[in-house]
């Protein structure tokens, strides 16, 4: 059967983008009130307006710093606790209820509790970390547990060192799980981080700007800030994924060389 020609991937993405912006524009036109749903050109104009202010860069920079700090701390901690849980059943039994509670508790509860416990500037760091930690922990634990037993037996027979086992068997097994976890958590960290900024009024933050836009009924600004959050989230995800996904360059060996018989 003849394969039907399809649009190239970048064109498909562009088409989807144009389609949904079109839907947004139509809804905005139907509602007819910029204060409820501003049209895309108005939001773009407001975004350009924001881009001209130093406050914008300070707020974005501080939000990125806080949320990335929380995210990085959670990834590191999640890797450590994930490894501990995979190798020790006792440690896993102790840690599992903690992570189950974190996963089941609404993020708003944690934000309100954190307002009582810690400095408000650190709340977005804490909340982002809290959302990311259980996912990374679970994925790393699962990745280690799913390591191919047959390969581990092979490693035992051929006297692999601990370093060889780590780099050749465990890491390739864990990497897809960790990558999937990181990808899932980036969005999670951003959403929870910005939500906590809104509730804790963190100085110089996207959340705070969103809140102010709501207070002064600047819906177009609110949309512009939301577009900024989405754009930063996508940029960070692409950056991180390209870092994780860089394939090891294939080592080149001299195939033309005819080695002497050495066995």
């Amino acid at each position: 059967m003849k394969k039907r020609a399809d649009l190239p991937a970048p064109l498909r993405s562009l088409l989807a983008f144009v389609f949904w912006v079109g839907i947004w524009w139509i809804i905005s036109a139907i509602v007819g009130k910029e204060v409820l749903i501003p049209s895309p050109p108005v939001v773009v104009l407001h975004l350009f307006g924001l881009l001209k202010t130093s406050d914008f860069y300070l707020s974005v920079g501080m939000s990125v710093l806080r949320i990335t700090a929380g995210f990085a701390a959670a990834v590191l901690t999640g890797i450590i606790t994930g490894v501990i849980s995979a190798v020790s059943k006792t440690a896993d039994a102790l840690l599992s209820p903690l992570f189950s509670v974190i996963k089941a508790t609404p993020v708003a509860s944690f934000i309100i509790l954190a307002l009582v416990w810690i400095n408000k500037e650190l709340i977005p760091v804490f909340i982002s970390a809290l959302m990311v930690l259980p996912v990374i922990h679970g994925n790393v634990k699962e990745g280690i547990k799913s390591t191919d037993v047959q390969l581990l037996e092979m490693a035992k027979i051929f006297g692999f060192t601990k370093k060889q086992k780590l780099y050749r068997i465990y890491l390739p097994s864990v990497t897809p799980y960790l990558t999937a976890g990181i990808k899932t958590c980036l969005g999670l960290a951003w959403k929870a981080g910005v939500a906590s900024e809104v509730l804790c009024f963190a100085a110089y933050s996207i959340g705070n700007k969103l809140y102010q836009s709501k207070v002064y009924l600047e819906t177009a600004d609110m949309f512009a800030w939301t577009v900024t959050v989405i754009a930063i989230s996508i940029i960070i995800e692409k950056l991180l994924m390209s870092l994780v996904g860089i394939k090891q360059k294939k080592k080149r060996y001299d195939q033309n060389k005819k080695p002497e018989k050495v066995v």
Partner: peptide, 29 residues
Amino acid sequence: FQENRLIPSLTAYENVFEVCHKKEKTLYL
């Protein structure tokens, strides 16, 4: 082994080299 048990992330060369760390021997075999 009854199964091949090769490391999927390594090339044929690397799978053999990993157990002997001798380039000539690996290429010869």
